[in-house]
Amino acid sequence: MQPVIDIQRLSKQYGQGRKAFTALHDLTLSVHQGEVFGYLGPNGAGKSTTIHILLDIIRPTAGRASIFGRDVSRESVEVHKRVGFMPGELALWRGERASQIIRDFAQLRGNSTPQLRYADELAQRLNLDPSKRIREYSTGNKRKVGLVLALMHKPDLLILDEPTSGLDPLLQHTFNQLMLEAKAEGRTVFLSSHVLSEVQSICDRVGILRGGELQSVENVQGLLANGVRKVVLQVPLEAQAHAAACLEALPNVRDLTNGSATLRFTYVGQMQPLVEQLAHLPVQDLLISEPSLEEVFLAFYGDNEKVN
């Protein structure tokens, strides 16, 4: 079956000569129908550049990309009819009412009545009052407007740039529900994020981007089974050397550092062996937290190591 998004050897370079900067290098990626694909990477990895190329806002230096089999640059208007987009930082006309912008965008797509009906429904679910002017909305409410604009025409493909950043837990839950509904209806979602935990519950696969290069495409279930945690452990100073030796003996402990009475390390995989080992140590305090995406990446692949 033809992929919904098909990216072949896509590159984007900004500037020329000594000031040249490669934002995206030789990216090849496919996203299939009905899939929720997480496009992950730290800030500056090239996520937004990819999305902007897919939407024909910027043009690639090399390679090609197609959506629904249509070239994203040459047939952008046709492509956009089937795509819903929410940018990372939504900017709209500050003096306009959200309801007016919703009407305008619906009219741009034609057959606006069902879109407006669904936009009303979405606004209710998101607890959004669309009669206000854009300048009157808080950041969170602006993101709700962005969601309504992206979803109201029930697009076959949703492209969302960092959609979960700045959402409160309640809204995050509604957002996840909306994404799962879209998936259940056979629609495709391509969303970027720099926080794995925010998207892991809805994504089928994630692509990890770093320094403009795709490092890996992983099944989320597989990634979670190998869960990565940051651990900070406090033990009495006299027991520190012993504790460090015991922990280093565990095969899943990585990057152990030894501070004043504090041991820090990254733990990968099942927690049971760690818990059993900790039971034998004089633990004074324990903090287990989720690492950043960069740290997950380092734990799996190490620095400068390219996978695939």
Binding site: L55, E78, H80, P87, A91, L92, W93, L149, I159
Partner: peptide, 14 residues
Amino acid sequence: EAGIMSVLLAQPVS
């Protein structure tokens, strides 16, 4: 400059 054009260009309009 305000970033609005990116949103508009993602709509089906040339």
